[in-house]
Design a protein around this nucleic acid. Sequence first.
DNA 1: TTATGTGCAAACTGTTTGCGCGAAG
DNA 2: CTTCGCGCAAACAGTTTGCACATAA
Lengths: 153, 153
Amino acid sequence: MRHTEDSAAVTEALDLLREKGERVTAARRAVLHVLDDASGHLCAEDIATRVDEAEPGVHRATVYRSLQSLAELGIVAHTHVPGSATIYHLRHSPGAPTGHAHLQCSTCERFFDIPSDWLTPLGDRMREELGFELEAQHAALLGTCAQCRAAAG
Amino acid sequence: MRHTEDSAAVTEALDLLREKGERVTAARRAVLHVLDDASGHLCAEDIATRVDEAEPGVHRATVYRSLQSLAELGIVAHTHVPGSATIYHLRHSPGAPTGHAHLQCSTCERFFDIPSDWLTPLGDRMREELGFELEAQHAALLGTCAQCRAAAG
DNA sequence: TTATGTGCAAACTGTTTGCGCGAAG
DNA sequence: CTTCGCGCAAACAGTTTGCACATAA
């Protein structure tokens, strides 16, 4: 096991694991570190690659299982991306106080974050008229970004 | 080749194919029939199954390819569904004048349609503030439906 | 006749799972 | 010491692709 210093966010997450009676393992610690370091959003495969750099020998399947349990515990959040891999990030990330929804450009495939509250009026309407509770951050929205629109004319 | 009567929508689609110099084949005709008959939204596999009933021997891969070309021609529309198969429907369907966006319940997996214009204010904001052009119908939104919310308490 | 679409099999990506071993508690 | 997580390999779903053959135009 590697003994890199755990950041505040990671320590918090590990404590939460222990509290819930879950085990703290090298793999889970490594996954948390990767997510903590990552500025953007990473898919499981990317995470596996980086985990394997820090903690060689950790299997991809383990990364998937770790992400699953961490998601169930509410430590990480995942966003489904149409037509490609699910992306993951730490839930109570310092940079994101409100929570954010995800936009993906269908052309260049880049992601853009928007504050969740942009979706609040829509969510309200769905609740009122359909009784449907929207989870704004759970699926990426598609469209075309400014750059690609300009490029396309 | 089967000689079932083509509906107006199917005839229109086939004409469009010819106009564009694309070939009218049994497989494509069958795919269009299935989409025309279908009330709800079907994934490629479902379409393949139904196509095979009407036109035995049509390969799944052909259905995928047909859907692809029909989508490029703007005859069918597809919606990516987080975590499962892409769903397809006829573009200028008689029942859907405005176009609709798709909601999926994460619990029971059922779909709900909402008018695209519910997303117009959000789309406007994205365009103004980010230059991002939202394609509201291109990805399903996730949440929890009234029934499942009630069931969960 | 000739380009385009098709059938088939095989690859591919993203993800899950059954099994026995190993390590956290 | 016991249970839970892990590594591994294999399976899975959804989709795409290279190739040779068939067929719409």
